[in-house]
């Protein structure tokens, strides 16, 4: 009740740049609440972003923040974590940023299991650059580069992350801010690479081209397609086509990269004496 966001935001930068009704603000609040519940100091948290609408977030939050090049947020974040393993690194990224342009960084960060929490805000389009088709645009839906409907099959962020070896994988939508917060907190607690996908609304670029130009219409469109994980287990793949299964998919432990690296350094030092 009445969470005090003031210590965590840069008030002079507000109101934020995002379009009215955009889900990124909801995600930003969830991240702030999750960090607050972890009890971490602001100086110990680093928020890194690439390019896109989501990447404007580090400008508004009062952590250590870094705004990097397109798709390379995870590469920069890996550097931060490597140099300062005691800091907590969070990466916010859009679907195009994380899965298309930064796709390679994404799978290899999952493979290494480095202790970073990646939050992929999936709005199903490239919002900032003019509504181009992204790897998660649903089939049949229009984008500025697919004016007659998308013909490409799309990525499932969750399955991609599981396949590549992430140790915490979850998905929520903008309609469930409390669930989002809980998943981000679990991701922060996880010692390893955590991927949290948040399905959001881009009514300006995605919605407007698909007769859903109102934020509420698109939010309801997402809500209709939400399926809880325990319900989805009894459903066939055909029934799950075009649905967003929400919940926690993977929670496991695997050796963490910076710890393994430190062990290797110790071993080599010992051997050289």
């Amino acid at each position: 009740m009445a969470f005090n966001y003031k210590p965590y935001i840069r008030e002079d930068k507000f109101p934020n740049i995002w379009c009215p009704g955009c889900g990124i603000g909801i995600l930003m609040k969830a991240i702030i609440r999750a960090v607050h519940k972890m009890g971490w100091k602001r100086e110990d948290v680093a928020l890194v972003s690439g390019i896109g609408c989501t990447s404007r977030m580090p400008g508004y939050v009062n952590f250590n923040t870094l705004h990097t090049t397109h798709g390379r947020a995870l590469a920069f974040a890996t550097g931060i974590k490597h140099a300062r393993p005691d800091k907590h690194v969070i990466v916010v990224s859009g679907d195009g940023d994380a899965l298309a342009i930064g796709g390679n960084h994404f799978i290899h960060a999952c493979r290494r299991n480095i202790d970073i929490t990646l939050i992929v805000l999936n709005n199903m389009i490239y919002g900032m650059t003019g509504g181009q088709v992204s790897p998660t645009t649903p089939a049949g839906y229009r984008a500025s580069t697919m004016p007659y409907g998308n013909v490409e099959p799309n990525f499932d962020t969750v399955n991609l992350a599981i396949g590549a070896g992430a140790t915490y994988v979850a998905r929520s939508t903008v309609n469930n801010p409390a669930l989002m917060e809980r998943q981000i907190k679990e991701g922060l607690q996880n010692k390893g690479f955590s991927v949290i996908e948040v399905v959001s609304n881009c009514h300006i670029q995605f919605g407007r081209r698909n007769k859903m130009g109102d934020q509420l219409v698109l939010r309801h469109w997402i809500k209709e397609r939400e399926v809880p994980l325990r319900k989805a287990k009894d459903m066939s793949p055909e029934e799950l086509e075009g649905k967003f299964v929400i919940g926690t998919f993977v929670k496991k432990t695997r050796p963490e990269y910076t710890e393994e690296y430190a062990k290797m350094v110790e071993r080599v030092k010992g051997a050289s004496k």
Binding site: M1, A2, F3, Y5, I9, F14, P15, N16, W18, G21, C22, G23, I24, G25, I26, M28, K29, V174, P177, A178
Partner: peptide, 19 residues
């Protein structure tokens, strides 16, 4: 009823519910 949904769902930090 103090469910806090408006505060949680506001993307612009513009609404706060106090008991």
């Amino acid at each position: 009823i103090g469910c806090d949904l408006c505060e949680l769902s506001c993307p612009d930090f513009a609404i706060e519910v106090y008991e």
